[in-house]
Design a protein around this nucleic acid. Structure first.
Lengths: 230, 230
DNA sequence: TATGCAGTGTACCGTACCGTACAGTTTAGT
DNA sequence: ACTAAACTGTACGGTACGGTACACTGCATA
């Protein structure tokens, strides 16, 4: 991302300013970063900045698009693992969570949440490039893999629930700054558990249609879920 | 919330200012709302505001605490429906989603995300009062209801996954302003589906231990989930 | 070397806003 | 009715920032 002179001095200055903006927005947020801060770090001049981006919002827009495009790239290639075996769901979930929790993603998310009303289209760009695309790809596969059963909802809804389960509250905690950083082990473990529940469920109270012996693959662990009705 | 003269003029003015601040922060965000705006709406004076709250951040803090305390109140009473039958999980999920998507909650969340670094403790207050408390209550019940099975994680983790699944991406979409408002039917349907998956799962590929005939409660709908390995 | 353009550095303008000060006005208690 | 305190309204200071203007510099080409 930080490389010199793609072509001509102009683009080099543009990139330097984008880099400085990205770093500073990530460190201090958008509002608290002044153009002077950015110029101090990028060694550029005010005139050049306005020539390249037109306004502070223009700079934000360019920076968000750059970060968004690169951070979700992991999810773009279908050449990954198999998608709907358990291992595939785990690997996909891992990639999604890593992308969603990357510091750049979190910073961009913070900025969009705060400034979204001023530059509305960037929120759409962010969400469409990331979660929405993934949801669609997942839903497509789900549609092919699952014949619909009543009360189970559309493939899109199932995909949304899968992503929600896999992400849990990791994202909220990160965005609110309640956690310094999640370790790889924590993420892996969380995703693994979520996928397990997504596939098998935690088990239904025995007072319903099924009996324990109806589920020979996991008999003991759902023993008294139903006795808790309070 | 908007009532006159709890006791003395002071508290009345304080409440009027809090109300105006809540409304305006909700409409325009924190940064874009000036004290002049608030004073214009609350009919109060600048001096009184500083006497009551000390600073703009103090006003924010008071407003966030008020909203947070009231909006999660729905979740506070255990006298609700049974907690772990399917109906109970659905009802609890509904309440959680409604609280999380309430306009006041969304607005407060936006503000905290944007200004959290300036007033760090309010983010903690928000999360602890809402999701964290609920997670703990859920986990406690889960611990009692489920005997642990290997690879399934702690009750806390299961609770987090439950909340994540139930919320799906509704919250993100709302926060990013991509949706005007969710209808009650949409929320109800989403929660119902999520709880279904949480309890039963979507079904595991037949290439694993179980066979189709092992799950007589939902035989047809999981036919070729495994054939999709990419 | 001469020329022109791209980029630089800085000074400046207008504006918006937080926070304070202060004189005037309303309310409540005696 | 008198007085003290609470509240109002406004004006002002200080500051920070976005955006513009403009003179200056360095590099590349003819």
């Amino acid at each position: 991302m930080t490389q010199a002179k793609p072509q001509g001095r102009g683009l080099a200055r543009r990139q330097a300013m984008l880099d400085a903006a990205r770093e500073l927005f990530l460190e201090k947020g958008f509002e608290c970063t002044s153009l002077t801060d950015i110029l101090k770090r990028s060694k550029g001049s005010r005139s050049t900045l306005y020539e390249q981006f037109g306004s502070k919002a223009g700079l934000l827009r360019a920076m968000v698009e750059e970060v968004t495009s690169t951070v979700w790239q992991l999810l773009g290639d279908d050449s990954g693992p198999c998608t709907f075996c358990e291992a595939g769901l785990i690997e996909l979930g891992r990639r999604f969570v890593y992308s969603a929790l990357a510091p750049e993603t979190i910073a961009v998310y913070r900025i969009i949440v705060a400034e979204g009303h001023r530059v509305p289209e960037i929120a759409e760009f962010f969400f469409n490039t990331g979660p929405r695309t993934l949801e669609h790809r997942l839903a497509e596969r789900f549609r092919a893999a699952l014949s619909v059963r009543e009360n189970v909802g559309s493939p899109e809804e199932i995909a949304q629930i899968y992503l929600g389960a896999v992400l849990g509250d990791l994202h909220v905690r990160q965005v609110l700054g309640l956690v310094p950083h999640w370790s790889d082990e924590q993420i892996d473990s969380h995703v693994r558990i979520a996928v397990g529940i997504f596939l098998d469920g935690v088990g239904r109270p025995p007072s319903r249609v099924e009996t324990i012996s109806d589920r020979p693959d996991s008999p003991k662990e759902i023993i008294d879920l139903g006795s808790q009705l309070g």
